[in-house]
Design a protein around this nucleic acid. Sequence first.
DNA 1: TTGTAAGCGTTATCAC
DNA 2: GTGATAACGCTTACAA
Lengths: 340, 340
Amino acid sequence: MPAPVPRQKRATIFDVAAEAGVSRGTVSRVLNGEPYVSASAREAIEAAIAKVGYVRNTAARNLATQSSGAIALIVHEPHSVFVDDPNIGAILLGINSSLSAADYQLVSLIIDTERDSQRVTGYLGGGFVDGAIIVSAREGDPISQAIADLRLPAVMIGRPDNQPQLPWVGIDNRGAAEQITRRLKATGRSRIGMIAAGLDRDSGRDRLAGFRDALGDGYDESLVSRQSFYTHDAGVAGMAELLRVDPLIDGVFAASDAVAVGALEALASAGRRVPADVGVVGFDDSAWARRAQPALSTIRQPAGDLGARAAELVLEQVRSGSPAADGVLLPTEVVWRDSA
Amino acid sequence: MPAPVPRQKRATIFDVAAEAGVSRGTVSRVLNGEPYVSASAREAIEAAIAKVGYVRNTAARNLATQSSGAIALIVHEPHSVFVDDPNIGAILLGINSSLSAADYQLVSLIIDTERDSQRVTGYLGGGFVDGAIIVSAREGDPISQAIADLRLPAVMIGRPDNQPQLPWVGIDNRGAAEQITRRLKATGRSRIGMIAAGLDRDSGRDRLAGFRDALGDGYDESLVSRQSFYTHDAGVAGMAELLRVDPLIDGVFAASDAVAVGALEALASAGRRVPADVGVVGFDDSAWARRAQPALSTIRQPAGDLGARAAELVLEQVRSGSPAADGVLLPTEVVWRDSA
DNA sequence: TTGTAAGCGTTATCAC
DNA sequence: GTGATAACGCTTACAA
């Protein structure tokens, strides 16, 4: 970064001390609400603080205490997904509420380019945060490696695969996928396909694995369309592909609600009725699911809880100074609506 | 925050200096790429850095340089809106790309409760950031007041109303609303209503004002449904209300796409065809607009540019040390699709 | 109960 | 070119 102009000088503990006629040590004590300060001194100091408009320089405090009171959330999503990933927002809010309750500041860092990645790494090592939460890490993510190297307390949301050993919190994608696929099958469908996505991360792979588990011998590789991202477009393309491969397909498990909505559209264009001709199920229970036509049967993911739990896990590590438990799995739920 | 355990001690400049057999000053010089360092010293230092695994403590650097190389983005949205506001994501990415190009770190802070607000204020005053960007500030927002008090370089996204004088970047909500309402009128509609929302902020008020401008004498107060937030639910409720007030209503301007999609649903339930019976227009050109049935006619808002421009404005202030220009208005565009 | 002074890890200003 | 050394603003023993 280019050398910026230093900000206007503000009052320091020094000024407060002078104004109140006490030493800096005493000022520090009242600032930190410590005992052993006379009422008169406290009063004088409080008056002085107000008078000189003192605001504590937390950065300096950190240097002295060797801790910052902040936790980073690192979001690493491709541009296209980020803007309408339904989970990110809920996770964020969940993390924030846990952290907030413990008086920690959440700072969210987004990684969109290689350059960002470098800079964020520096930031994490720079003493600005006491810990980090990583969302949507991918295989061989340089950030998780850096965090491991820095020995920064951290937690991943979503079970990592080839990642360095970091604790994580996630859902049982595989089990949930199996469950909803079975349910779909139980509606009497016999030619069930899947629009898979995000296969470069655990969630995507596990959902596919669960689908396979549910179908057992009936699993047909050709009825799986592999898409890159959990997007609406992926759903449109994937459904078109599936219809081409098997025009008689009568059931589809989409890897996410956004994908499912895309599939719904493609089915409509192809003149198929849902659920009469084809049953469709999604994953996430995002806003899309409720508003889709017809409303989507899907898996409810406890996004807020995921965040909250992750936050608790980092704080635990920060406080104890030692790594936390391996991983925790939060329960999901099948939400059955009209699309299947 | 509770006293955390200090992180494991890491190598400092001191260690590097000792290892390389030079002084800290020299180490600092190579770290900052300054001239006047002998090749031999540089080599020895680089080797030492690698050997001891040195990572610069940026927090300490800040204390010395009186600047942090970071800019805060403050998002203050009610829970419900935050998770599906289509603009926030795009704005975020826009800010990040501008900041990233200048090697500044974006840190996003979210405010969800009064407690958050307090903590964030402390954070901003703590020397962690050189400037701030505020999105969706509301009337009498304590944060903007705090920023003004701190004399922290800042920019608002969305024109503030009763705010302290901070520079801003926004769009001409009023003009855009007028434009699209006129266009709707031009399709031959005669009983046009509006589902207004977010009236506690400039965008909401201006969109309503623009609607009024467009209708002139034809403006009918009873055909305006006032909702709290830019949400889907608001659209459903608002449309139901409008239908009750005037069953013959034939045109609706919804304050946002999410609201419009809700209206579309309410109209469908009421058995009205769109656009045959009722024309509907939205605002934002979010993902909702393209995927709605029928696709929504709306206003395209340059969310990414808004962010990018805001970032440039803060950096300008940070560099020059003085307040920037008043405000800048970015152009919008009518996107005409099928809903009207 | 209060003051003193030694850090915290860098940068920056000097002499040398 | 390089090395001391004084900031930077705060916390925290330790003395008093």
